[in-house]
Every structure is written in structure tokens, then in C-alpha cells.
Simulated assay, not measured.
Amino acid sequence: MSRPAPNDPRRSRLMAQVRQKDTAAERRVALILRGLGIFYRKNVRSLPGSPDLANKHKRWAIFVQGCFWHHHRGCRRATVPKTNQAFWVEKFGVNRRRDAHAVRALRRDGYRVAFVWECELDRPEALAKRLSEILETRCIDVC
């Protein structure tokens, strides 16, 4: 994947501020899990895809996805920038393929895998219910 040359210093500064781990969304999901009494580790690098939250003993992993960066289908936040559209479409495709590869590897290893989308944090009660159902039972739910 070729990267465009930064042509706007303001845009470059803005993009440099985007966090890759310990994001606000990850912290909010961690708070929900703590409230449910569910134990986890953050950014588990020893697992495929370095899940944002995981419990190796109970064999589950959660990826907290930004709707824009991982192009959440059907979400109003999953826009494609008008500038350099070809680059962005390719970038979103690469992100989604990488996510799918990590999920397959985790499932092969016997893990339950869930995605929490950034837009789900608008309804924390519903998200808490979904997470408790996924993590407390043998339910699998990948959105």
C-alpha cells in the first residue's frame, strides 16, 4: 500500500494525534468490563492481532474498533474522505483484512472473539448487556 505524501501540515499534525492504543473507547469498554466484574489484560501482544482486551485463561478477546478506521458497515461514522479516496478505500480494506486474519487465528486457537464498535459506546447499557452475554456464556458474537 503506497502512502500519500503529506501535503497539508495541519492534516499531518491532526493524523499524528490519533492514538493506536489506550484510546478513549478502549478505556470506556474497560470500565464496563470492570463494572461487570470481568477480568482482562489490555493490548495483549502475545495473541494474534494484539486484542485490545483479552483473558487468556477464559480464552476470549475483544477488539475495540473505531468506526472510521475499520469502516464499520452501515455506520454513519464510516465515511470515506473526499481527498485521496483511492488511498482511503485501500487503507480500510487492508485494516479489515488484517482484522479478519487475526480473528481466524484466534478462533483456531480456541478463543471467543468480539468486536466493540465505537458507535456502540453511545448506548453503554446495551453494550454492557451484550458483553456480559458474550463473556459469561459460551456465546460467540462477531459484528
Rank of each mutant, 00 (worst) to 15 (best):
G37E: 01
R123L: 13
R130N: 01
A86P: 01
L121K: 01
T79H: 13
A5R: 15
E90L: 05
D22N: 14
S2D: 07
V94W: 11
I134Q: 09
C67W: 10
R112H: 08
G37Q: 00
E125H: 06
L135G: 05
F115S: 01
L47H: 07
L127P: 06
V142S: 01
N55K: 01
L131D: 02
H57V: 11
E120Q: 13
F87N: 05
P124Y: 05
V89H: 09
A54K: 00
A24H: 03
F39N: 01
V113G: 12
D22Y: 01
L47K: 08
R76D: 11
R28G: 06
H57G: 04
T83Y: 05
D109F: 08
R130K: 15
R96T: 13
Q17S: 15
S2H: 09
A126W: 01
R45T: 13
I134L: 07
K58V: 04
A114N: 06
Q65H: 15
R45A: 14
R45H: 13
W88A: 06
G66N: 08
R34G: 00
R3W: 08
S12E: 10
E133R: 15
M1P: 12
M1V: 10
I62F: 03
D8V: 09
E120F: 04
D99I: 05
R97K: 15
P6K: 14
R19K: 15
R112L: 09
E136W: 06
Q85H: 04
G74P: 08
A86R: 09
L36Q: 06
D122K: 10
A105L: 14
E120S: 06
F39G: 05
A105N: 08
R45M: 05
C119P: 11
A5S: 10
K56T: 12
N95Q: 14
K82C: 00
W60S: 04
T83M: 03
A86D: 00
V29H: 02
T79N: 13
D141V: 09
N84H: 12
R98E: 13
N55Q: 03
V113F: 07
A25P: 12
G66Y: 07
A54N: 01
R108Y: 07
P124V: 05
G93R: 15
E118V: 02
D8C: 14
K82V: 08
K42D: 00
W60P: 04
E125V: 13
G49I: 08
A102M: 12
L106A: 07
V89T: 11
R98C: 06
Q65D: 12
I62D: 03
D22M: 03
T137S: 14
T83F: 00
R27L: 13
P51L: 12
D122E: 10
Q65F: 02
N84K: 15
R76W: 13
T83S: 12
R3D: 11
K129Q: 10
W60N: 04
I62N: 04
R112K: 15
D8F: 02
V29S: 03
R13L: 11
